[in-house]
Design a protein around this nucleic acid. Structure first.
Lengths: 340, 340
DNA sequence: TTGTATGCGTTATCAA
DNA sequence: TTGATAACGCATACAA
């Protein structure tokens, strides 16, 4: 481990001043800086020779820009988020930004830890997929000059950019699809009701039922978590607690992770899917294709969401004036397979 | 967006020198620095009052430590890696390090881009899950004082720490299991042979056959990629090209991603799994449980691998002297399910 | 067309 | 028990 060369070393070797090295590296030419081609060549040669690489850290201190973006997600083991991160990374990389990834494991405490860490780290922007943060928590980032884009609809209307799927409409469409298939008793395995995604999907469910003139039946709502936690038990408890004639003929789960757990549980208990009970999900994660029967679900392009998120961040970071808050709506589509 | 307070501001408010603020923040007390409790109180009060947060960047410049670790993975959409990252993050977080995640999408070019970026970024350590890097590429990091741990066995014996599952033994065990089930014609859907994981799993396959006195048949080796790319076509081509009597009764795939593609393809062509052909995989990703039939596979604890990787990194970063290269072997276990 | 000098926010050395 | 002060490596205003 040897000392790494600095611009000073390069300057010495190229027989120019450190400032000139900086000019060359940043390829300055506009304004009143004009470096001769001859000098540029000498500097680049010295850079090559020494294997000089800029110290991003030192530059950050000076420019007040870290070239660092962060992505906070609630559950990295939900395959939706790795896809999103891929999309985010592809654009970040093109622009020579790096991506900090933080999995909060669905914990409010860790969401707050994340905020503090980013504040200290002086990242340039963050993509928040938050389930628990309050607007005021996010505001702290804005005050510190850290740009935010919120994915998934919690944290709206707080002056930053939002990326969202029209969840309510999508859920409504899916339930209409089930109705079209002739189902009249449709249960809903919901997401947490303190998340906008959870709420919106429930609302869509209600809306479709009401449009079809079907009365809302509270016993058909299973309060889920969006995660693997406790979903299986929840289904068991539900089935144990309902009579055969009251049993729904279809279940709309608020996401695929839970839908898959549901299918597994139904099968384990000897119900045929979709014969005895049809199941539909939301997200179209890779497992949805693989499970038997393949899951009917709502697709939305995770990769695109990540890409768009970074796009909004970069635009805001690079823009001089304050941009108006923007909303990007991600298209969704029904993915009919055999589970419903 | 207002200017953020610095130690100077804190110092002014607390009526002490900036140095003292730094002492208090870093809780210095050993050596010849001894700050009175009264002063400490005043400083903390000022910190609270101003909402001061340290600038990690500036500190990095001074200390030459960024508190940044990076994880490079070949395919974030392989659920194995998100799990590994979770494990890595949990330990990193405890020690107030942040994690940079980089998905190379199995491209050598991007692996090299990653190296360069980390060199410029001055991260303290990297976890490499590399499929393409040469030892010399990694050495560049070491020369720059960046600590490395290599996961998965490529890049061995180059002076840095390694985390690996005994892949050969595990593969051998799995094939022995298939033999025990009475299979005599066992095909292998291999990983790329320029990766150690790919090679080791093939070796294990060969070893088990040879121990059972079964001749190696080259026609039963399908050269796979470890990814979804082209796996389905590969299987189709294989089945098209083989007579019914030559058809194997079992397939050992070098990872679950490919095993699952194989099962899907077999089913699509009307073969019963495991009746007509048994299938076994490697990794025990979440999908393996979900597919029909559930996949018999080899499990190894991805989360633990990530955790161990960061442990090795931190030990090396914090240690004064040069540690000897260490190897952590991750236990594996057969997960018998119904596909084989 | 290039060099000098300063400051970004810390930490660490030395002196008081 | 504390305070001056000098780096860390870079970018930039200003001078030459």
């Amino acid at each position: 481990v040897k000392r790494r060369p600095t611009q000073k070393d390069v300057a010495r070797l190229a027989e120019v001043s450190p400032a000139t090295v900086s000019y060359v590296i940043n390829n300055l030419s506009g304004g009143n800086i004009r470096i001769s081609d001859e000098t540029r060549r000498r500097v680049w040669k010295a850079i090559e020779e020494l294997g000089y690489q800029i110290n991003v850290n030192a530059r950050s201190l000076r420019t007040q820009k870290t070239q660092l973006l962060a992505v906070m997600v609630p559950d990295l083991t939900n395959p939706f988020y790795p896809l999103m991160i891929r999309g985010a990374q592809s654009l970040a990389e093109e622009n020579e930004y790096q991506l900090l990834v933080y999995d909060t494991n669905d914990s409010k405490e860790r969401e707050l830890i994340f905020i503090e860490a980013m504040l200290r780290r002086r990242v340039d922007g963050v993509v928040l997929v938050s389930f628990h943060l309050e607007v005021q928590d996010a505001i702290r980032l804005l005050e510190a000059g850290i740009v935010i884009v919120s994915v998934g609809g919690r944290l709206r209307d707080a002056g930053f950019d939002v990326i969202a799927t029209p969840e309510r409409e999508a859920a409504c469409d899916m339930v209409e699809y089930l109705l079209l298939k002739g189902h009249r008793r449709i249960a809903h395995l919901s997401g947490p009701q303190d998340t906008p995604a959870g709420r919106a999907r429930l609302e869509g469910y209600c809306q479709a039922l009401s449009q079809a003139g079907i009365a809302f039946d509270e016993r058909l709502i299973l309060p889920g978590t969006f995660t693997h936690d406790r979903t299986v038990e929840l289904i068991h408890a539900f089935l144990d607690g309902i009579s055969e004639e009251d049993r729904p003929t279809a279940l709309f789960a608020a996401n695929d992770l839970m839908a898959i757990d549901a299918i597994q549980t139904f099968k384990k208990r000897g119900y045929k899917v979709p014969g005895d009970i049809a199941v539909a999900g939301f997200d179209n994660i890779p497992e949805a294709e693989v499970i038997e029967p393949p899951l009917t679900t709502v697709g939305h392009d995770a990769r695109n969401m990540g890409w768009q998120a970074v796009k909004l961040l970069l635009e805001r970071i690079e823009s001089e004036e304050d941009l108006q808050p923007r909303t990007v709506s991600i298209p969704y589509y029904l993915v009919p397979r055999t589970s419903a």
